[in-house]
Design a protein around this nucleic acid. Structure first.
Lengths: 165, 165
DNA sequence: TAAAAACCCTGTAGCAACTCCAGAGTCAAG
DNA sequence: CTTGACTCTGGAGTTGCTACAGGGTTTTTA
C-alpha cells in the first residue's frame, strides 16, 4: 500500500506520515523501484496507534515511550500507568488554568457596555491600569505559566490550515 | 531608562522586549550614543498593557487590534467587546475540549491495574484497537481540532526554560 | 586608572508538531 | 503519448518566544 492509501485509512495527512518517519515514530518504509514508500498492515497499526495517542494530546516523547512498551511486551506496564497519570495531571492542571483565565476575562468583559468611545472603554482602561507593576515578580507562577515555561501553547488553534485554497 | 530596567519593572525578559519591537508591538526605541535603547513612561505603559493581554492568553494579533483602539480613542469600542467575547469563546471551547479529553483519558486509565506485563496492559491494548479505522474521516472536528487547524497548542508547557543554568 | 563585571547590541537557530510549497520524478488511463 | 493523479526530496513557515555566539559599552571595583 502506498502512502496516499495509508493516509486515507488513518485520516493522517501524507506530509505528517513522512514527518513521523523522519522523527522515528514510524520505521522507514520499504521502497518500490520508483522510490515510492510501501506500507503493510504493521505500519498501519502503528500509525493508528500513534494517531490515537495524538488525539489524546500526548506529545511525541510520550508516544515514543508507549511505543517502546508495545515493542517489548514482557516488561511490566507500571510506567504506562504512570505516564498516563502524569498526562491526566497535565490536562487537569491546564483546565484549572483556563478556568481561572475565563473568570478573569469575564470580569474584564463586564467593565464595558457596548457603544462607548474607546477612550471611555472600561476594558481598555482596565488593561492599562497599574502600569508600573505587572506580573508581580514574586507572586507569579500562579495563573498562567505560559510566560515562565516553554511558552508555546495557546488557548485555541485559531488559524485554519487553508486546506481549501 | 535602559532595556534591563524596563524588563525588571514589567517582569518581561529582555529578549522578549526586543522581540516585541521587531514584531512592531512596541515602537522602536530611541538610542543612546552607544546604541543602547532608551525607554520612557509611554513605552513602559504600553509594554505593561501588552503583558497584561498576554497573561490573558491573547495572541499578538488580538493585542495589535487592542493597541490600535487605544491609539485611536475616538472610535467606538464595540470591536473591543467583540474581540473579548470571541476570546472568551475560544477559552471556553478549549476548556470543553480538555474536559472531554480528561474523561477519555480516565476511561483509558481504568483499563489497566498496576503491575501487569505490557503485553496484557489494558491501556496499550485499548490504544491498539480498531487499527483500520481511526479519527473517522467524517465525524472528526469533534473533540480535538489540533489536528485539523494550525496544530500547535498543547495541554501544558512541560518544558522548563532552564533559566537557572 | 585599569581591569573586571555587568550590561547591551545584532543575528541566527531552536522549540512542537506539523503544514505548505517548489520542482522534479513515476505511474495508470485514455 | 499526453494528461492527470500521485509521489519524491528539501526547505521554509507557523507561534511566541528563548538561547546562544561574538561582539561592543558602561559601571563598578581594586
Amino acid at each position: 500500500m502506498k502512502i496516499g492509501q495509508l493516509a486515507q485509512q488513518t485520516g493522517t495527512p501524507v506530509d505528517t506520515i513522512r514527518y513521523y518517519e523522519r522523527e522515528g515514530l514510524l520505521p522507514r518504509a520499504a521502497r518500490t523501484e520508483g522510490n515510492y514508500r510501501i506500507y503493510d498492515a504493521m505500519h498501519l497499526e502503528r500509525l493508528a496507534f500513534i494517531r490515537r495517542c495524538r488525539s489524546l494530546d500526548m506529545t511525541q516523547d510520550e508516544i515514543r515511550v508507549l511505543l517502546r512498551f508495545r515493542d517489548t511486551p514482557s516488561e511490566s506496564c507500571e510506567d504506562v500507568n504512570a505516564l498516563l497519570d502524569a498526562h491526566i495531571g497535565h490536562v487537569a492542571e491546564r483546565i484549572r488554568e483556563l478556568q481561572q483565565l475565563e473568570t478573569q476575562l469575564q470580569v474584564l468583559r463586564a467593565c464595558c457596555k457596548e457603544g462607548r468611545q474607546a477612550v471611555a472603554c472600561g476594558i481598555l482602561n482596565e488593561l492599562s491600569q497599574g502600569a508600573t507593576e505587572v506580573s508581580t515578580p514574586s507572586a507569579s507562577e500562579s495563573h498562567l505559566s505560559a510566560t515562565h515555561a516553554g511558552g508555546r501553547q495557546h488557548v485555541t488553534p485559531r488559524k485554519q490550515a487553508t486546506r481549501d485554497s
